[in-house]
Design a protein around this nucleic acid. Sequence first.
DNA 1: CCCCATAGGTACTTTTTAGTATCTACCCCA
DNA 2: TGGGGTAGATACTAAAAAGTACCTATGGGG
Lengths: 129, 129
Amino acid sequence: MKQAIYNIGVENTMKIIGGKWKPIILCHLKHGAMRTGELRRAIPNITQKMLTQQLRELEDDDIVNRKVYNQIPPKVEYSLTAYGQSLNKILEELCVWGENDIDRRKANGENIILLNREDVPNDSLPYAD
Amino acid sequence: MKQAIYNIGVENTMKIIGGKWKPIILCHLKHGAMRTGELRRAIPNITQKMLTQQLRELEDDDIVNRKVYNQIPPKVEYSLTAYGQSLNKILEELCVWGENDIDRRKANGENIILLNREDVPNDSLPYAD
DNA sequence: CCCCATAGGTACTTTTTAGTATCTACCCCA
DNA sequence: TGGGGTAGATACTAAAAAGTACCTATGGGG
């Protein structure tokens, strides 16, 4: 059995939900189950390979559930497991923080664009300056 | 001027606080200012190069403040900026989630060790099964 | 004079991660 | 017969991230 040693909790968290694609996938799945093709369309630039690879890893970590419908053409739905949903709040906050940060930079003159602003919980920013 | 395009907020967040070392550095700094050497000791395995490199990037993004004391031998203190502190809650949650996840896996028979459990807010786990 | 401690820069190499291209399977439909 | 539509596997290549080794500066102390 391989032994894993971490110095701080966040190290483990990032191993599970870190990387280029996992946070994005999870932020989409937190709204409900999605088919493979839906995820592909929702996440421009992701390749089929990276999508399935990351989903498999999330499955292995009991974050994502894979449901296969036995039909032709194939239909597969991905969703957060009950355990994966314990990440919902964090995922939401990561999204919102990033959105507000983009606003802040834009106000600061940076040329930065956010295409899909899905989380707009309220009008009070966590940080205003 | 270079244009940045994001599809979803979390993409931006991860660009700023993602990677192998940044979340760890930030989780340490959220307790207060630390000297370079303190950070190095607090984060085993990080190299001087990675530490300063990541700190410079966090500085560029207005997350971390660098204070140089003009003395010999040199003394430099790093701390979260006021803006960087808007990440405090998220950082805390990332730490705690990782800690609880390690407990969960350990209970599940995995050989996994957490050396520094710094965030123990209460006895109610976000997810118990 | 040389080494200590401190903080940091830089060229180069290795490792990890991600991307590309091509392959499978299945049934339907024209 | 040969597409389309779905989901996915795999070998190979490219790019990004991290690690290694060695260099700088400064003043004090032995």
